[in-house]
Amino acid sequence: MSLDTDDIKAIARLARLKIDEADVPLYANNLSSILDLVEQMNSVNTEGVIPMSHPLDVAQRLRDDVVTENNQREEFQRIAPATRDGLYLVPRVIE
């Protein structure tokens, strides 16, 4: 599998990652060789094999829908890049 520079730009956009233009060919190269490695999977016939969702075949545990956490907004917002009046600040979204 070979990815070109346009593919890399499209993937980076989906992943919300800014990639320097100069680095795009190297990423294309690296990702293509990783996908070549990955494609060794295709040597095996997996028809009818159940995909593994948990090593111990355990189902997701559920709990009662009750409040278990205290409000710690102030403590958590102390480590935020920018807040005001209990809100997280980001650049203006709506003009």
Binding site: L3, D7, I8, I11, A12, L14, A15, R16, L17, K18, I19, D20, D23, Y27, N30, L31, I34, L35, V38, V90, P91, R92, V93
Partner: peptide
């Protein structure tokens, strides 16, 4: 803008190997 905030924060905050793996996974 908000998209610039996301993409540059992630692009500058993550190193090359992390970005490679995020992109492989995204793909």
């Amino acid at each position: 803008d908000l998209n610039d905030l996301y993409t540059r924060s992630r692009g500058e905050g993550f190193g090359a190997e992390v970005k490679r793996r995020i992109m492989v996974g995204t793909y």
